[in-house]
Design a protein around this nucleic acid. Structure first.
Lengths: 238, 238
DNA sequence: TAGTGGTCTAGACCACTCG
DNA sequence: GAGTGGTCTAGACCACTAT
């Protein structure tokens, strides 16, 4: 672990346990550099993390204030470290099941070629999974992945976690994702599997997930029950 | 302007005009430091910006690759620099109108006190505005702001841009926002003003906007026509 | 004016990738 | 082994605040 990440974690812990109460000021960067026996640049990097995560707000000439974070305690999981739905629910201690609606191999169409930077000859998996949380329909997931990046995908893996397989078995590292979120009317699949009523809206998320080397490896559309899932995001400038 | 921001902008420009084509490698940080006559730390900071914005992907031991960005060209505006709907539409060159549905002063309830860090005695504005884009209903905005932070709010201002007033007249600087996005069924106001059909979903965004000093100054719920608005977000780790 | 955070430097060491 | 990016240092200068 880096120094600045360790220090950031320590400071977060001190904020959470009220060593640094909301509304008070953090010690100055110079003081913290002395305390932790590191250079001020390192402290600065740590505090930038805290700023972007909404723990503090730093102002030149004044100091670094501990922020009030009224939204944070809700059980909506932060999307800034996406590791798949399985990991998300594991953290919340909620049981998840996956039901395979469709699983086959195909060639990508033009849109898919563009999004996954593939040629027309490179095969992809087409996967439709119903994901249940607390034994109730949660979302319907239409996923496309290049076969060559994810060899030997099996029903067994699809019933559990694709992301576990990618990260732990294949050693692939996820860099992040691009998402587009919108509301939509339910289609026939939604009504059939998510048990949507005809007037129940659906929260649709189109998502591209990238590996650390820049390669996109997943292009998916998830259709979420409107009463089960919402998304949060935090955007703070320095 | 900072050195690292200028350099980041220059590099972005070079990527857009294909001086650095997609898939190629950026010159090494050492080379760029020589070219720009700055230290490598400064180049590193610039490249971190490009990474977080999805322009490049850097890998230790390998280099920094120019990324393909298939989603980017759409006319969905990036939410990472929120300055209000007026500014968003101005950039897209689309005309916006605002109709005041309700505008009065009140005391905050418990939830609002918590979100805006106010006491029960500090008054707030309650504003409901219908925003039209291209002369068609776009979203219905329920906004709450502390009176003391935004004195002398008038109908005139509400008909144009609150954010313009805040930033240009009051000199307040916006740090960013926290958002929660979900799908919902339309209520009576939505049907009346947004012209929603009973089975049209609504995209609801709860939003807290923060000033640079950490003070939250807006707590709003916007209800967006599902066929007009979607949200995008990009989350990339280094 | 004193103290703060933002930026920048010129080095350094290290982990990593690739041929 | 050569080259890459990630981190870190010990200092420096500057812009800003006085909540």
């Amino acid at each position: 672990m880096n120094k600045y990440e360790s220090i950031a974690n320590l400071l977060k812990q001190h904020i959470r346990d009220n060593t640094y109460p909301i509304g008070s000021l953090l010690p100055s960067q110079t003081d913290l550099a002395d305390q932790f026996q590191v250079s001020r640049m390192t402290i600065n990097k740590a505090i930038n993390i805290l700023t972007m995560e909404g723990f503090v707000s730093a102002q030149r000439g004044f100091g670094t204030k501990i922020m009030n974070r009224p939204f944070w305690n809700k059980n909506v999981s932060p999307v800034d470290q996406y590791n798949g739905l399985s990991a998300e629910m594991r953290q919340l201690n909620r049981p998840i099941e996956s039901q395979i609606i469709d699983f086959n191999v195909d060639f990508p169409d033009a849109d898919e070629q563009e999004h996954l930077t593939l040629t027309a000859q490179q095969p992809i998996y087409r996967i439709i999974r119903l994901r249940l949380v607390d034994h109730e329909p949660y979302l319907l997931e239409h996923t496309i992945m290049p076969v060559e990046l994810v060899p030997n995908l099996t029903d067994e893996i699809l019933h559990h976690s694709i992301y576990d397989y990618l990260q732990n078995k294949l050693g692939l590292q996820i860099a992040g994702a691009y998402r587009n979120i919108q509301a939509a009317k339910p289609d026939e699949l939604d009504m059939k599997y998510l048990k949507c009523q005809p007037d129940d809206p659906v929260l649709e998320v189109a998502q591209m997930v990238y590996l650390k080397n820049g390669q996109p490896f997943e292009y998916s559309h998830s259709r979420n029950r409107y009463d089960k899932r919402s998304f949060t995001e935090l955007n703070l400038r320095k």
